[in-house]
């Protein structure tokens, strides 16, 4: 498999969210706006790339029986790095992502890539695989966040998109349900249906 294919498979063909349904907890929880979705996606991408590199480096030193706990420790270390640096440099984003930053450690996508890809391949392909899958995850979260923000708040990345009728006072009449919990399930359901159709044609 060429490196380009290795990189691009995470976007549509093997997309973590839309096709493999991995990492659904952060996907649904933090995508109330496009910005939160992108932030979460990039944080996960960093953990994914670094964990893939380290796992692929040490794969021959780790006995087979303790490999899963070892992978979890490697992942947890990078999650802690992301958690602390985000708290220091991006306190607002850190506050809105909240408990889901430490919970990257139990994101099945990260452990899944470490086990299924990085423990069998060399450093170069593992890094590219992590980057591709991570950016595909970030793409999915940003798309979901953008759709929810547009329908629920009438904006994308905080920029107003005037598609809704406005009240006398000028405030847009939006469908608030989409930024609340139920909207996450519904929008993801329709996005998966659309992606399935696109893949078929």
């Amino acid at each position: 498999m060429s490196q380009l294919k290795n990189f691009s498979k995470g976007f549509i063909k093997d997309n973590a969210v839309f096709v493999q349904l991995l990492g659904l907890c952060p996907t649904l929880a933090v995508t109330s706006s496009a910005e939160n979705g992108l932030g979460m996606g990039l944080a996960t991408t960093f953990v994914l790339v670094m964990a893939n590199i380290v796992v692929s480096l040490v794969k021959n030193q780790i006995p087979d029986k303790v490999r899963i706990p070892s992978f979890i420790v490697i992942i947890a270390s990078f999650v802690t790095i992301v958690d602390l640096s985000m708290a220091g440099f991006l306190p607002t984003l850190h506050a809105s992502l909240g408990i889901f930053i430490p919970l990257i450690v139990v994101n099945c996508l990260v452990l899944g890539r470490a086990e299924a890809f990085a423990s069998k391949n060399n450093i170069g392909s593992s890094a590219i695989d992590g980057l591709g899958m991570g950016l595909g995850f970030a793409f999915a979260l940003t798309l979901l966040g953008a759709v929810r923000e547009l329908l629920g708040a009438g904006s994308i990345f905080g920029l107003d998109i005037p598609i809704f009728p406005v009240t006398d006072k000028g405030a847009p009449i939006t469908m608030l349900i989409f930024v609340l919990a139920p909207g996450a399930f519904i929008v993801l359901g329709y996005l998966i249906a659309i992606i399935n159709q696109l893949k078929k044609s």
């Binding site: 349900i177 909207g183 399930f185 993801l188 359901g189 329709y190 998966i192 249906a193």
Partner: peptide, 21 residues
């Protein structure tokens, strides 16, 4: 046809979440 499987399950979960609201 296009909604069978996961998509319709997610929409149903959304409606369940709406009830819990």
């Amino acid at each position: 046809k296009g909604m069978r499987g996961t998509p319709i399950a997610l929409v149903a979960a959304g409606i369940l979440a709406m009830a819990f609201m």
